[in-house]
Simulated assay, not measured.
Amino acid sequence: MTPPRPAALPTLPALLVGSLAGLWRRPAAPPLQDGLSRHFAVAGIDPKHAASYCRLFDFRHSRLPLSYFYLLAQRAQLALMLDRRFPHAIPGLIHTGNDLRLHAVPRMDFGLTIAVSLGPQASTGKAPTLTFGFEMSQLGRCVLSGSSEYRLPKSRRLTPSLHIEPEKMPASLPALAWSFEPSQIRRYALLSGDYNPIHLSSLLARRLGFRGAIAHGMYSVARATACIEAETARPLLAISATFQYPIHLPARAIFGCEVVDATHGSYSVFLPKEQRIAVKGLWQAALA
Rank of each mutant, 00 (worst) to 15 (best):
P10D: 08
L12V: 13
G18N: 09
G22C: 11
G22W: 11
G22D: 13
W24I: 09
R25F: 04
P31H: 11
Q33C: 04
L36D: 10
R38C: 04
F40H: 12
G44K: 05
H49N: 09
H49P: 06
H49T: 00
S52Y: 00
Y53P: 06
R55V: 00
D58T: 01
H61C: 03
H61N: 06
H61Q: 08
R63K: 12
P65K: 01
Y70G: 01
Y70S: 02
L71Q: 04
L72K: 01
L72N: 03
L72Q: 08
A73Y: 05
Q77P: 01
L80I: 02
R84S: 13
P91T: 04
L93K: 03
L93G: 11
L93C: 09
H95L: 07
G97V: 03
G97I: 05
N98Y: 02
R101G: 11
A104V: 09
A104Q: 15
R107G: 04
M108A: 14
D109H: 09
D109G: 10
I114D: 09
I114V: 15
A115L: 05
G119H: 12
S123G: 01
S123Y: 12
T124F: 00
G125N: 07
L130A: 11
L130W: 14
M136D: 08
S137P: 05
Q138T: 09
L139A: 15
R141I: 06
C142D: 10
G146I: 08
S147E: 13
P153W: 13
K154R: 14
R157L: 14
L158V: 13
P160N: 10
E165P: 01
A175N: 03
A175S: 12
A177P: 02
S179M: 09
S183G: 04
S183N: 07
R186M: 12
R187I: 06
R187W: 06
L190P: 00
G193Q: 07
P197W: 05
S202K: 01
A205V: 09
G209I: 05
R211W: 02
R211D: 15
G217K: 00
G217M: 08
M218H: 01
M218L: 15
Y219I: 00
Y219F: 15
C227V: 04
I228W: 02
P235K: 09
P246G: 05
I247K: 05
H248C: 06
P250W: 07
A251R: 07
A251N: 11
A253V: 08
F255Q: 07
G256D: 01
D261V: 11
T263P: 00
S266A: 13
S266Q: 12
P272R: 09
Q275S: 15
A278W: 04
A278E: 06
V279I: 14
A288R: 13
